[in-house]
């Protein structure tokens, strides 16, 4: 999640692909312009307000979720220091552990694998439980959302209807050699070729396209260079191109439901406000939020405000 997003921004910066441009357009907040010195200009927001530092990955969708949290916390009277677009887990998790950051939207499976690389795929509830054990002292996860943003075996609706495909296992009946466009690391992931062979008896080979399910990956699928593509499930490109996400009844693919990871400074009032957002954030909501960023090029602050108002959270 972190790496693909970094690249997506790089692409945007290089002016390639309108999708990537959309991603970059939303990532314009300057991490330095908030004067976020710990203790420095804190508690100037009225009745001794607590300053909470909210971070986000360098991934436009993650920033929108962070902004949802930021706006409900501000409505609760907290002062929020926005530290968006931080990048990789290796960078921001130590910041959370040291107390420089207080809150960041994370994804269940990837967060658990960061602390326990051997963690097997499981249901979202089980992963959430395992995270309680795995997280270091001082950090905790709040409730997780229905919305998730995870790898998928996706195909075109044409290919799916020709071969009557609804689940990954149905691919076992397809005669032609199957290729999936994905970042090359899929080759070594548990849900990669080895995993689908073992669990579903399907042979696939990875065609590396390193833009993390971005425009090039979608293009390779639409061009027919590959029959399958690994596209993140919250990507608006799935609906836009009428793609079919093949079901994964055996939970081979790690669930990546959105989950806030919080420091001790997030008290019960703050946690309740954040979980109010989480409770309403469905899979369709996340796709729609992403669509407004990528297609409509709206800023994450505007997107967040619109959604929170619509849901009665502001």
């Amino acid at each position: 999640m972190t790496i693909h997003s970094t690249r997506r921004h790089l692409l945007g910066a290089l002016g390639a692909g309108s999708l990537a441009l959309g991603a970059a357009a939303c990532g314009s907040s300057d991490p330095f312009d908030e004067g976020g010195e710990e203790g420095g200009g804190a508690s100037d927001g009225g009745s001794g307000a607590v300053t909470l530092a909210i971070g986000s990955q360098a991934y436009y969708s993650n920033e929108i979720i962070a902004e949802l949290f930021a706006q409900v916390l501000e409505a609760e009277g907290f002062t929020v220091d926005r530290q968006y677009q931080i990048g990789q887990r290796e960078v921001y998790l130590p910041e959370l552990e040291s107390g420089s950051l207080d809150l960041l939207p994370e994804y269940l499976g990837n967060l658990l694998q960061h602390y326990d690389s051997e963690a097997p795929s499981a249901s979202p509830e089980e992963i959430h439980g395992a995270l309680d054990e795995a997280l270091p002292e001082g950090l905790r996860v709040l409730d997780f959302a229905g919305a998730s943003d995870q790898d998928s075996y996706s195909t075109t609706s044409d290919f799916a209807s020709t071969h009557s495909l609804t689940a990954i296992g149905d691919l076992a009946g397809v005669e032609e050699a199957l290729k999936i466009a994905a970042n090359s690391e899929l080759d070594v992931r548990p849900y990669g070729p080895e995993g689908v062979k073992e669990v579903y008896g399907v042979d696939v080979t990875v065609v590396p396209v390193e833009d993390s399910g971005g425009p090039l990956t979608v293009q390779a699928l639409l061009d027919g260079d590959v029959q399958l593509a690994d596209i993140y499930t919250a990507d608006p490109a799935i609906a836009e191109n009428d793609l079919v996400v093949l079901e994964d009844p055996e939970s081979l693919i790690l669930p990546q439901n959105v989950v806030p990871v919080a420091s001790e400074k997030i008290d019960e009032t703050a946690a309740t406000a954040i979980e109010g957002v989480i409770a309403q954030l469905s899979a369709d909501d996340l796709v729609e939020l992403n669509r407004q960023s990528v297609v409509d090029q709206a800023s994450s602050a505007d997107i967040a405000e619109g959604w929170l108002t619509e849901k009665g959270l502001l």
Binding site: E185, R189, P208, V209, E210, D211, D225
Partner: peptide
């Protein structure tokens, strides 16, 4: 070249980075 489905030494670099 490895960014868009070809080979070369970039394969090691991209896969190493991603995993």
């Amino acid at each position: 070249a490895a960014y868009v489905g070809s080979g070369g030494l970039g394969r090691y670099i991209f896969q190493g980075l991603g995993s």
